[in-house]
Design a protein around this nucleic acid. Structure first.
Lengths: 140, 140
DNA sequence: GTAACTGCAAAATATTTGCATCCTT
DNA sequence: AAGGATGCAAATATTTTGCAGTTAC
């Protein structure tokens, strides 16, 4: 449907299939981090559970999405922003998990502050998750 | 065995049982965040898998341990430091996951820097996980 | 003695793998 | 045509729940 979707897949050297298009569309529709279960629910049986797992895995490997840490054990994912598209992955924004509506949002404008690590520690990736009440819930 | 262990349980109003003592001992022995699987392995069948789950849950609820985010989906836990003991929970230190030895360490001396959140967002808890190479592995 | 803790069985959930078939390139 | 993607079945892993028996206080 969306030429945007096709382009995304092409950009990441992924084959254009129905399930991939549909799954990307879900990511585009929502601006929050979603889980395998969210996708499965949204698809309502249209695709096999396994296909969704494998699709997420290829998206991860191709750098189309990134993993977002969650409070509970559940894995969540969010689209990488444009900065990622050209090989140079930057996921240095903070994620916010609302304890009220349970939504996990990427705070794209809020970057993870760097810290000075003890001698010998070398940082590669950072994950910063804040739990609290989001803007929509605090307004209500 | 350790009067330290007894005291910890007493401090948190938990009954002194064999499994609880043993599990706390493991936490004390290691200064890293451990998972349910780690404990099960260390106990080598001495306690039921379910008991370990429930023990961890009561430790969590009583504030004896805190949950540590992990890269993969697995849940990990670490002892709370003294500051937590008196009801006022402060887990504002950074966790470091070594991609080489897979160990997750609490960097007790490195505090999570505060960030300015967009309007409407209210922070309650913070989790900061850094992945990279730890001091022991970088030295080797 | 009583409420809490434990072990066992089993259910519910989450994730992975093998294989035959189908589809994109 | 060929390799990658999908669906189905099934194995594996993870976590939770019910219940009866045991134990700490």
């Amino acid at each position: 449907m969306d030429s945007n979707v096709k382009q995304l897949l092409k950009d990441h050297s992924l084959r254009l299939t129905q399930s991939r298009s549909d799954i990307i569309s879900i990511f585009l529709e929502r601006d929050v981090a979603i889980s395998h279960g969210d996708i499965e629910f949204a698809m309502d049986g249209k695709y096999d559970r396994v296909t969704i797992y494998r699709t997420l895995k290829s998206f991860l490997e191709s750098g189309l999405i990134h993993k977002v840490l969650d409070d509970n054990g559940g894995a969540r994912y969010a689209l990488c922003d444009d900065a990622c598209a050209d090989g140079d992955h930057r996921h240095d924004h903070i994620h916010f998990k609302c304890s009220n509506c349970e939504r996990t949002t990427c705070l794209d404008g809020v970057f993870i502050p760097h810290v000075k690590l003890p001698k010998g520690f070398e940082a590669a990736e950072s994950n910063y998750l804040i739990t609290g009440v989001c803007d929509k819930c605090s307004a209500a």
